[in-house]
Design a protein around this nucleic acid. Sequence first.
DNA 1: TTGACCAGTAAACAAGCGTCTACTAACTTC
DNA 2: GAAGTTAGTAGACGCTTGTTTACTGGTCAA
Lengths: 186, 186
Amino acid sequence: MDEVRQRDRAGTRRRILDAARKLFTELGYDQVTMRLISAEADANVALINRYFGSKRELFAEVLAMQGRFPGVLDVPEEELPRRLAEYVAERLRSEQASPVMAALIRSASCSEIHGLIRDRVSSAILEPLAARLPGPEAIFQAAVATALITGAGTLSQLYGPDAFDAPDRETVIRRLTAVFEACLRA
Amino acid sequence: MDEVRQRDRAGTRRRILDAARKLFTELGYDQVTMRLISAEADANVALINRYFGSKRELFAEVLAMQGRFPGVLDVPEEELPRRLAEYVAERLRSEQASPVMAALIRSASCSEIHGLIRDRVSSAILEPLAARLPGPEAIFQAAVATALITGAGTLSQLYGPDAFDAPDRETVIRRLTAVFEACLRA
DNA sequence: TTGACCAGTAAACAAGCGTCTACTAACTTC
DNA sequence: GAAGTTAGTAGACGCTTGTTTACTGGTCAA
């Protein structure tokens, strides 16, 4: 009993970061407590502030380590609507499809990190998507698509997986593709 | 000094309810504290629990007093997409277009009221909208439209009014109408 | 006028939060 | 092997939260 713990600065830091990423993704910023993170990471609470400064800075680092809307936008232009549709369909089907956006959606109500969230949404989705669209309404079109994506996340969280007695997957994707085409069409 | 307050049970109750509705709408469930409500209502904190039981029950009563997606769905079927588009356009333009959904969107992350929110979204938007659509995919189509509506609310809250250098209002509504048509089309 | 009732009040309650300080003990360096 | 550095720990700090208790004092029927 009373095992002596190894001293491993880098490892402990990473455990904390991983635990924070997992919990923020599942629960959102203000539902996650420092003690919850420390328990999940099996590390002392004080170490979180020692290594990351504050809860807010830890959250910022979690955001920074996320890829930017991973891979979804990296397809030829004509496949973009279907690619987005597949992404949203996946988010509607499984409760926890993509950790990238989940933390953002569930944390938007907390004014403490309002700026962090906004910057992240801009740089991860809104701007790269708008950059791929021609014409002066690109930003607005990208915003509509982003609204659909985040809204799907919200509904998915609210109702759980497979809540809408969805038809087969291909029908779902076909419908969503049509909607995204309407968003992105010049 | 030390004005003696009138005894007015019904009036005080209504002041609290109005203050709660305003604050929940602006800030969301967990950003609103009992003391904030009591200050806004100019009533003692203890009276809130006396009249409503708990914060949660007060929130439930605020939800119950809201009309169900006021008037938006009460148009002929062919005007429905444009009507929804106008609604979303209004939400994107002014930060606080509709108080009905705002509280819901900003409160979805709080598990304490998860059930309340879900029931409210179902009865206020999802089900009445689905009821107006034909075919076996009505629920799913309504869900996509709902996702767009709530997502627009989230983005509006995140970026503030007029954030997307939107074209003129008519163009915005035309684009959104096309998207909703893609959602609702058989 | 008196006494029951009850709207309104102030203060405290326990629990939870993020953060910080004082300390222990394991490594490293000379 | 002694000294210094530092990872890890335990616990308290100050604050905020929703909720509750004990009390004050108007109101109104008898």
